[in-house]
Nucleic acid binder design. Structure first.
Length: 575
RNA sequence: GGCACCGUAGCUCAGUGGUAGAGCAGGAGAAUCAUAAUCUCUUGGUCGGCGGUUCAAAUCCGUCCGGUGCUACCA
């Protein structure tokens, strides 16, 4: 048996505005959930944390536009994301909110520690201010004519037309993106800056120490920031919605300002843990300051700088023994039919629409089997249909049906006990001993594409065995020989349910019930955990009891037809 | 503009110095338990171009071309 470990898992926090697309899902929440399920199945003490990221200018302005307060706006979308997460089988120990009291409390704690330790300082910055709107505007909320190419809707941070980096003062005829008002001026504003530059050496040696267990996409992004020279970073903003800067920091010089969303968002990992611990009567510091915990983070590459620089500086600067991440798993982008998924452009497939097309488990398998781990990967409907039809419907689903239906037709739906396993079965057992271990090793390292490749290969091995055993031929002359094939086939089906549960929990349960009641144990939020199979395939594949009733399931995975592919392409073609 | 990553079979991707790989698609055959699902065999690539280092380069270096992203006030 594997050594029991304590594993802390966080997924990058989805921004609360709107429904997330499949690129967001595959880059953080889904791999975090699959990894957490795998850890739970292995019997490790596991804590999986996610939350909505609820602060920042976009929320405040979107709420303004809808005529509701930012709190109400965040409430609405948090509920939507919670439900969609549930529908996708994302089972967190806690799905929190960065606007929670716990996060307010902890964010202030970190800010005060940093202030006390001298890692924060006041600086005066120049910022765009809209007189009509009576508010400061983030650079990208100032629009005007690009001085380089003349594009008349350039944003204050960058011109989308010629891609040049801009400053709001560069714009000709600047105006507010909020109201269109032209009385935009530049004013002074005082802010707190985090002295990241003082941590450059410490960060570099920390990241160096992870070159062997973080992927190149992660370390190269981190080193890029360090190589360019770490700059101190403003951690406050002129907004109303957020965590207010308290008067005891800088003697009230920042009255009316809030912390920058990227300062408080990662702290929510800790705060959501605290909420969970408080509810369960345990201590969150066991997880965040405990020495025997391995901490995994999952995120898209856009989040990497904040998790390799910003958040670590917050932790290091606190002077307290908070855990730094041990294994940082970063993902590239999932592209949609050659272009990018875009929330603002409504391009691609979003979590709500996806479930109208296929069940959650089908998406979970497809997405993780094609996760953009080492490079950006590309989604097409043809590819999706091909994988669903071949891997899930044919190789896995059909295997379950052919075995269970044959048992029902020829052995009266009772698992046959006649005959003994011979050389064919022993060879299969030896092969699977190796393959199941390989699969587990890949999952243990969060190498999802390779893990899914091995999982699929295991299903193929089942089909190969059945072809050699050919119980449909044996039954005519040698009932015991046919019984051996069917018994092994059913044991394989049973094995598969245990192997696929982390990836496809509902399908695993459906198949398992066809063989026998699920003997799992209670897990998170009352969900039954189907545990990892026995390490010895000789035991695992001789586990079912002769005589037990087998009930063939209905079609497990519905195929996607060519006509549907055409229809989906037309429907989701993009803006 | 700067920087980073990527460019390998029709498609989706492995492979990072030692005789080019997998799955799918395509072709041939076997089987008929099963969602016509499976199994076996098989066609297919001068590894983006050019130049260099090396006994040896998809792999290292330079350069060019193409794609994507980031560029610190979107998150």
């Amino acid at each position: 048996m594997t050594v029991k470990k304590r594993i802390l898992i966080t997924s990058a926090l989805p921004y609360v505005a709107g429904v997330k697309h499949l690129g967001n899902l595959v880059g953080s929440m889904l791999p975090a959930d699959i990894f957490a399920r795998f850890c739970r199945a292995r019997g490790h003490e596991t804590l999986a944390i996610c939350a909505t990221d609820e602060h920042g200018a976009p929320i405040e302005l979107a709420a303004l536009e809808e005529g509701i307060g930012p709190r109400a706006y965040a409430d609405k979308w948090h509920a939507v994301q919670k439900k969609l997460g549930d529908d996708f089988g994302l089972n967190w120990d806690n799905f929190g909110r960065s606007s929670s009291p716990a996060n307010h409390e902890l964010t202030l704690h970190f800010a005060r520690q940093l202030w006390k330790n001298g890692f924060l300082e006041l600086r005066i910055t120049k910022q765009a201010y809209s007189v009509t709107d009576a508010r400061f505007l983030p650079d990208r909320y100032v629009i005007g004519t690009c001085p380089h190419c003349g594009y008349d809707r350039a944003r204050g941070d960058q011109c989308e037309n010629c891609t040049r980096v801009l400053d709001p003062v560069d714009l000709i005829n600047p105006r507010s993106a909020v109201s269109g008002a032209q009385d935009v001026e530049i004013r002074d504003s005082t802010h707190l800056f985090l002295k990241q530059s003082q941590f450059a050496g410490k960060l570099r040696s920390w990241i160096e120490s992870h070159k062997h267990d973080w992927s190149p996409v992660v370390t190269s992004i981190a080193f890029k920031w360090l190589d360019e020279g770490l700059r101190d970073r403003g951690i406050t903003r002129d907004l109303e919605w957020g965590i207010p800067v308290p008067d005891d920091i800088a003697d009230g010089a920042l009255k009316g300002k809030v912390f920058y969303v990227w300062f408080d968002a990662p702290i929510e990992y800790i705060a959501a843990t605290k909420e969970w611990a408080d509810r369960n009567g345990t201590d969150y510091l066991d997880w965040w300051q405990g020495k025997d915990v391995t901490y995994w983070e999952f995120m898209g590459k856009d989040n990497v700088p904040f998790h390799t620089v910003g958040f670590p500086v917050t932790i290091m600067g606190s002077g307290e023994p908070w855990k730094l991440v041990d294994r940082l798993k970063g993902f590239n982008w999932l592209n949609y039919d050659g272009g990018k998924f875009s929330t603002s452009g409504k391009r691609g497939i979003f979590m709500d629409k996806a479930l109208d097309i296929a069940p959650a488990d089908v998406w979970r398998y497809y997405l993780i089997a094609n996760a953009p781990e080492s490079a950006d990967s590309n989604f097409t409907w043809e590819h999706f249909a091909g994988v669903v039809n071949k891997d899930l419907a044919d190789v896995l689903g059909n295997f379950v049906l052919r075995v269970t239906k044959f048992c029902a037709a020829r052995f009266d739906g009772k698992l046959p006990g006649e005959g003994e396993y011979g050389d064919e079965e022993k060879a299969l057992i030896a092969d699977l001993d190796h393959r199941v271990k390989t699969y587990a090793d890949y999952l243990e390292n969060a190498e999802f594409r390779k893990a899914m490749g091995e999982l699929r290969a295991i299903w193929v091995v089942g089909n190969e065995y059945l072809t050699r055993a050919a119980p449909w031929a044996a039954i005519k002359t040698d009932r015991a020989k046919a019984a051996v094939g069917v018994r092994m086939g059913l044991n394989l089906v049973h094995l598969f349910t245990h192997l696929i549960w982390p990836v496809m929990p509902e399908l695993a349960k459906t198949i398992h019930r066809a063989i026998q009641p699920i003997g799992g144990y209670p897990g998170v939020n009352g969900e039954l955990i189907i545990p990892w199979p026995h390490e010895s395939m000789a035991q695992e594949l001789d586990d079912l009891t002769p005589g037990q009733t087998i009930a063939p399931p209905e079609v497990l995975v519905t195929k996607i037809t060519d006509e549907q592919v055409e229809e989906l392409k037309a429907r989701f073609g993009g803006a």
